[in-house]
Write a protein that binds this DNA or RNA. Structure first.
Lengths: 241, 241
DNA sequence: CGGCACTTTGAGAGTGGTCAAACGTCGTGG
DNA sequence: CCACGACGTTTGACCACTCTCAAAGTGCCG
């Protein structure tokens, strides 16, 4: 089996890694694979023996909910450890689905547990990665109960822009977003129709340009104001961990 | 400074602890304190040097939101490590507030980091505790976007009952809930008025009895059906971690 | 016996949902 | 080059869930 090429790259963004640590990460078994739009990368239910490190593209975490309605609980961007929580929780309660073209690495669980046995600092960085994920969900809970559709959409756009900027995927205030309005409605918990109205609302205010899978935020400061987005909320100071 | 009396007790519920591990946990510096209704246990913003282990009573995590509106992102029950995530994230984006009479232990961060340096298994259990917290938030995101008020309330009641049952605080299908309907509205993101209607709805179906700070669920199976609550979602099998 | 906080109720308004249809855009095939 | 179908976006009309404002009722405590 091949080894991970990207683990040290992405973990290294959270804190300085020693040469020894990079070597450990570089030796972890991993399988690199590509997926195209709509393909299921991991199906929920089972107890996976690997976790998905997203290298390129975007993936969603989709929760099937009884009567065909699907809810999407997360949008992941390159550098995200999509389902690292399954390493400890033991099973997945959702699917992981590709949006557009995607490249991932499947990282071996046994090797990750091995890291936790021998490398405390790396363990804390892995832990941190799941905590950032959790912080975003907490923010969603708060935002959903206070903001209405157009503001909630603006909030998410600010969040995505912030997260993508960290990995250098924002150019000219814009980024690729291979997601339809219908899917976005499933993410934010609105109907397709109402999602569209929210898009047109922000468009009319000249705060959002979104077409052909490309989003541009002409005035993010103003959008952040409309959406009550706190630009500091993912600015994790580069402190020792 | 005193040491923690409850850390090994609560962590020991997730997995078997060795005698050595119990000794380590029992030696961790901690300060035990009591709070009464409405008192702020930790104020957000700062970088705390301790984390709060809830021993008795309930506490809320409250997010002040701009114009006086407050949002509550979590209800914690005894055994919960309320703000352990701050150990890694470095700062708190919310307040921690007592509901009713509360007993907590403030656990020293430096000592916890020390544990992560030397005791991988305990580290994984601490990590797990933050992941369970995250899983609940993820569930809230999903539930809020699919369920309407009465079902969302039922879902939360089932969740609380499940969590309290784990720590032996459910008797005769009922548990203490020192929370007003107004506060519950802030938790679920509804108005006080609409929260009350949701309460009355479940009451009329004879699925919820809630008065004087005491909740009884006469038919949890049926309530779970109405609320699309999956009773398995916090059943963490007692597997080796 | 008053406060006081919480719960309950009613009425009108607004956000968001559902159903249905029209409109674009794009890739495929004639 | 146009016809066609698939898919996503846009729009309208009507309905339902939830909010706001306001007031009355209940229970607890000094």
């Amino acid at each position: 089996m091949a080894v991970s090429r990207y683990l040290s790259l992405f973990l290294g963004r959270r804190d300085v890694l020693s040469e020894a640590e990079r070597e450990v990460l570089g030796g972890i078994p991993a399988e690199r694979r590509s997926f195209s739009d709509g393909e299921t990368i991991i199906a929920g239910g089972a107890a996976p023996r690997t976790s998905v490190l997203l290298v390129a593209g975007m993936v969603l975490r989709t929760h099937p909910f009884g009567s065909g309605a699907q809810v999407i609980s997360a949008i992941h961007v390159p550098g995200d450890f999509v389902d690292l929580h399954a390493l400890m929780l033991g099973h997945l309660d959702h699917d992981v689905v590709a949006q557009g073209d995607v490249v991932v690495e499947f990282i071996d669980h046994a090797a990750l547990v091995g890291v936790t046995e021998t490398h405390p600092h790396l363990t804390r960085l892995l832990w941190l990665s799941t905590l950032i994920d959790a912080k975003i969900h907490r923010q969603w809970v708060v935002a959903k109960s206070v903001l209405q559709a157009h503001a909630r959409l603006g909030h998410l756009m600010c969040e995505l822009s912030t997260r993508l900027d960290i990995v250098g995927l924002v150019e000219n205030d814009g980024f690729d977003l291979p997601i339809s309005q219908k899917t976005m409605a499933d993410v934010l918990g609105y109907s397709t129709v109402h999602m569209n109205r929210a898009v047109r609302d922000l468009r009319a205010r000249e705060l959002l340009i979104w077409r052909q899978g490309r989003v541009t935020l002409p005035d993010m400061t103003k959008l952040a104001g409309v959406s009550a987005f706190d630009p500091a909320y993912l600015e994790l100071d580069h402190q020792p961990r």
